[in-house]
Structures are given as C-alpha cells and as structure tokens.
Amino acid sequence: MHIDAWIESVPPGAVYALVALIIGVESLGIPLPGEIALVSASLLASHGTVNPVLVGLCATLGAIVGDSIGYAIGRKGGKPLFERLGQRFPKHFGPGQLASAERSFQRWGMWAVFFGRFVALLRIFAGPLSGALRMPYWKFLIANVLGGVIWAGGTTAGVYYLGVVAEDWLKRFSWLGLILAVCLGAGSFLLMRWRASRAHPAGPDPDPEGGAEAEPVAAATE
C-alpha cells in the first residue's frame, strides 16, 4: 500500500501524529517519504477531513525536532556513522551521495540546511551531516527553523488551496458544461443565420424569363 493511500485509511485524529512522525524520522536521516505524507495530509485537509493548520504545525514540529536530533546524532557519530549507513542504505548514503551533500554543505554552510529542506536528498542529510561537520548549533537552528516553517507551511497551504479549488471546479463542472453547450449552440445558430443572409440577400427577385429587362428596352425604342 502506498503512503498516500495508507494515510487516507488512518483515522483523522491520528493523521497529525503520523505526519509529524514520518517527517521527523526522515529528518533524522532515515529515508522515508515525508513529502508524500505531507502532501497526502494536505489533500485530506482540502476535503475537510483534517485541519490544515494542525497539519502544517505538526509537519513543522516534526521537521525541526527531527533535524535537531539528527544534528546531535551526527555530531556524536561523525563521518564513521555515514560509512555504516552507506553499507545499509547504499542508494541514499552511498559515497557519491555523501560527497555531493558534503560539497554543498562546505560551500553554502547554513544555507545548505535551509534549502536542503526542499531537496529530498539534502533533507535526509541536513541534520546528521551538519553535526558531523561541526556546524555551530545556533546557525543550524536558525536555518532549520526557517526551512521547516516555510517548507511545511508552504507545502500545506499550497496543496490545500489547490485541492479546494480543484474540488470546487469539479462540483461546478456539470453547470459549466451546460453553459458551454448552450453558448456553442447559440453561436452555431447565429453563424448559420448570418451565412444564410449573405448567400440570399433581401430584395425583389429578378424575373427568370427576362421580363424585367424587356420594359426598359421597349421604352427606349419608342
């Protein structure tokens, strides 16, 4: 079962905790579909099943707390931690992925933590790698909080309002179809009437036997 279908099957009261848990565990450095969970919960909110504000708050809390715990783990375990993780999760923590993430963090510093929240690979690495590279915690915390708030809040709001608009549009689709059909029918009728008037202009029809032209000729001969 996919994560989105699984969330839809969960009781509404447990959706908030589930979103916070999945995003928090992902932020620890464990590859889980946190973004899919957030999008699925936001869509449920657009249907009125859950509260979008609580979804955004839980997602933000999970992101900030998870990243902070991941930072502490990375600071204690250092780079050997990533070597062990690379053996267990080669697709996510392989040497190539680790080298790419490390270059980004060394070049951009705390901005890598902020923008890393919006990139799947860096979202997993952000906390543990920041700790392993000994980034000052206050810098990490600022970038972590800002990234978590904007990512979680922005994603929730965007998906929620998109879902509301889409649902409203689908509800009105039958009326839109009816109005469109009436407009097309009226337009086709007017077009055919206009073309008919151009093909047969109004006025007296000429005499098919030429009688209308005979009288002027006779008068001219007299």
Rank of each mutant, 00 (worst) to 15 (best):
L122V: 06
A218D: 15
P204M: 06
T156Q: 01
M110I: 14
A196C: 01
T60S: 05
L28H: 02
G70W: 03
G96R: 10
R123P: 07
L98A: 06
A186Y: 00
L21W: 14
Y71L: 05
L18H: 14
R84M: 02
W111M: 10
T49D: 09
V217H: 07
P128T: 04
F189S: 12
L57P: 02
A143V: 12
D67R: 03
Y161I: 06
D67K: 06
F93E: 04
L129W: 13
L98E: 01
P201F: 04
R88N: 00
V55H: 01
R134W: 04
G109W: 03
L98P: 02
G13F: 14
Y71H: 02
Y71C: 05
I142A: 15
K76E: 07
G163N: 11
M135P: 08
C58F: 12
L190Q: 08
G163V: 13
A17G: 15
W111R: 08
G177N: 11
L28N: 02
A72T: 06
G127L: 09
T221N: 15
E215W: 13
I73G: 02
G94P: 00
E213N: 06
L44I: 13
I150S: 13
V10F: 01
Y16V: 12
S100M: 05
K79A: 12
G56K: 02
A181W: 00
G48A: 12
G29C: 11
I69F: 12
H2P: 14
L178R: 08
G62P: 07
P52K: 10
A120I: 10
M192R: 13
G154K: 10
M110S: 14
R193Q: 05
A202T: 07
T221R: 14
I30W: 04
G96V: 05
L81D: 00
L54Y: 04
L184V: 15
R107E: 15
L176I: 08
M1T: 10
A41T: 10
G185N: 01
S188K: 02
V119D: 07
F105M: 15
L18I: 15
R123S: 08
V10T: 09
T155A: 13
M135C: 07
W6V: 14
E213L: 13
P31M: 12
Y71Q: 07
W138R: 09
V25R: 04
D205T: 13
A152E: 00
L190H: 04
F189T: 04
A126T: 13
G177D: 06
A157R: 01
A41N: 05
S46I: 10
A143S: 14
A17I: 05
R198K: 10
W108R: 13
G211R: 13
G34M: 15
R123A: 11
V182M: 11
G74H: 00
V25Y: 03
R198T: 06
Y16A: 09
D67N: 11
L190G: 02
V165L: 14
H92N: 05
L129S: 11
G116N: 08
P136R: 08
G34L: 08
V217Y: 14
A37E: 11
K139S: 12
A181F: 12
V55Y: 01
L28W: 01
V53W: 11
T49N: 07
L28I: 06
N144A: 15
R107T: 14
A63H: 07
L81M: 15
P33K: 08
A101T: 04
K79H: 08
S188V: 09
L178N: 02
G13S: 10
Y16L: 11
L57A: 14
F82G: 03
G154N: 09
